[in-house]
Design a protein around this nucleic acid. Structure first.
Lengths: 348, 348
DNA sequence: GCGAGTTCTGCTATCGATACCAGTGATTGA
DNA sequence: TCAATCACTGGTATCGATAGCAGAACTCGC
């Protein structure tokens, strides 16, 4: 039923080792033999079994990428970049969706060890991922963190400039005259939440505003609903904020939805800015954002990882920080007066 | 270095078989022995190796899902549904992004066979996928098609009602008075392109309009750029269409971008409708669409597949057709007069 | 013509786990 | 009491492939 090296060997009248050598393009096989074997392979429809292969060679040429949400366009671009780069280096990539949950993350990391995956690119759930990642280390599986660092864990890392980016976004809001600026963030367990909060505070202090604890709310999930709930809390305040800095695209989308659902307008009533582009190609570019080069996150992470696996790099950890771009659109209220995005664009 | 059943067996003072039985929750192990083994497993930090497992048991509990574009929100939802359902049935899912290319599709299907993946859910590149899928069949790997059928291939299938959906969308346009209605479609190699074209023609004939070949253009890729190029071709016509039916969300987004880039307005100058939601949670709902229950595509496909694998179903192929919902928004021009989406919604 | 060096090929053990069969006690039924 | 059944445990072959070594054939140079 199933075709193995043995069948091919018998058919071609050679040993299994010769077949193996042909399949793996190894040297020391005469052209005549090689051709005979290749013919047998084609004729019998032989496909090598990676399980057997991995068992003896200890190599699977498989990498894993774990992100909290494959539907988030930021991570989608990361995946694309990582996949393409890995493929060019001869590795397959398995995509895992942790849904920002520790349990799923643990499951996936377990699968990765069980399946002898050779390396991992991961945007960790948070600092709590440390134990799980240390287990990886014990098993000798190299990994690269993306987007978020993990407190107390030494590791290769590709991340954005969260402090600086947040500073620029909030500076932009203060320059527009805003002083009551809220922040919708995530659990403090996540490094980007801490870093972006730092940038936010820096920007406020730069205009002599002391951050108001009431204006700091946490989304309880990484999707838009979490952002909407957080925004509702802000809207319920006695003194509403005039602007909101959302920690990422999903939170911002939820926030805008909540503001509109309350019958208010963005940016007329409340301005909104955030990290990351909202949709890869959007119909109506609307949000003012700190755009991060998401695909480069993936590309660089894959490169770092492959270098580790091939043991071309042995030393201590490497950290790559990629700056973002401020893209000013409508949601911050910087450019308005009845002009549509379209006319704005032509006017430029 | 690496912990195997043998190490655990030695440590617990039992045979490797007993360890295996404990790990696999099999019967016929005394509680005392079981506990001793479990302690050894914990102490040594043993993780079973799936390669060894799969080799002897011939089971990997792995499924593959292949879609043309993981960034497309339609497929993202399909993935979610499939992943969750499969997981509940005890299967892991590997996500593959074929980028609508035959070569990548072939690579992934090869990987699937090599890795003894037990079943596949696939939105095929087109009818050309037949050969590749027949290879799967030869290797005894069951699969379920989603979204698209493949001419000349018998297989389980979960798809939307393309003919009916297209009919409803185009009926909607004709009811609004449009008669010069263009269609942006994909290669005729793709079943949904053929089916949606049929619905388009039906709807036109119902108002005594003969389809104009000049108004049928094909996008050369499944992303927004393909849609934009196609739209540019339509805009270059001597007699422009007054409305466009785009085969899917990506094509529609590209079309709208192209229309706006030409200084025209949607829907004032050209109305646009399409299949599939554009973004899962969008800031400004704008496009009139035939929304398909994407997550159900995934859920049902996973169910059908698991039933096949468990051999609970042996008979001939099963076809599931899921109807869509017409969602009327602004892009078709049905509701206008300066009212925003928001006021519209509240008015409803 | 003979040793040294290449190139080519094959044998066998092994990777980590499970399947299959066999064996040991203990329990049950007549 | 004896045979039959059952729960539990272990030995060994095997899955499909590669590693490592060893042997065969072939090429040179002198």
């Amino acid at each position: 039923m199933r075709v193995t090296v043995r069948d091919v060997a018998r058919h071609a009248g050679v040993s299994v080792m010769t077949v193996s050598r042909v399949v793996n393009r190894a040297d020391h096989v005469s052209p005549a033999t090689r051709q005979r074997v290749e013919e047998s392979i084609a004729e019998l429809g032989y496909t090598p079994n990676n399980l057997g292969r991995g068992l003896t060679s200890r190599r699977t040429r498989a990498l894993g990428v774990i992100v909290p949400d494959v539907a988030n366009p930021f991570f989608t671009l990361v995946l694309r970049g990582a996949e393409k780069t890995a493929r060019q280096a001869g590795y397959r990539v398995t995509i895992c969706n942790s849904e920002a949950g520790a349990d799923l993350e643990r499951d996936y990391l377990g699968d990765i060890i069980s399946n002898q995956v050779e390396g991992v690119i991961i945007a960790p759930v948070g600092d709590s991922s440390r134990l799980r990642l240390q287990a990886l280390k014990r098993h000798g599986v190299p990994f690269v963190l993306i987007d978020r660092s993990v407190a107390g864990l030494e590791s290769d890392l590709v991340q954005g400039d969260s402090v600086g980016g947040a500073r620029i976004l909030v500076d932009h809001l203060t320059a527009l005259g805003h002083r009551r600026i809220a922040m919708i963030t995530l659990s403090n367990d996540i490094s980007t939440a801490r870093d972006r909060y730092r940038g936010y505070v820096e920007a406020l202090r730069a205009v002599d505003v002391e951050p108001d604890p009431l204006l700091l709310v946490r989304s309880d999930s990484e999707d838009t609903e979490g952002g909407a709930h957080a925004m509702e809390a802000l809207l319920a305040l006695k003194k509403r904020p005039t602007a909101v800095f959302a920690i990422n695209n999903m939170a911002a989308v939820g926030a805008v939805q909540a503001i509109r659902a309350a019958g208010l307008d963005v940016p007329a009533d409340i301005a909104v800015v955030c990290f990351d582009e909202v949709v890869h190609a959007t119909l109506s570019p609307f949000l003012t954002v700190m755009a991060q080069p998401a695909d480069m996150f993936g590309v660089l992470a894959a490169q770092l990882l492959v270098e580790r696996i091939d043991a071309r790099v042995q030393g201590s950890r490497r950290i790559v920080v990629l700056p973002g771009d401020l893209i000013v659109r409508q949601s911050c209220g910087a450019q308005l007066g009845g002009r549509t995005w379209h006319s704005l664009r032509r006017g430029k």
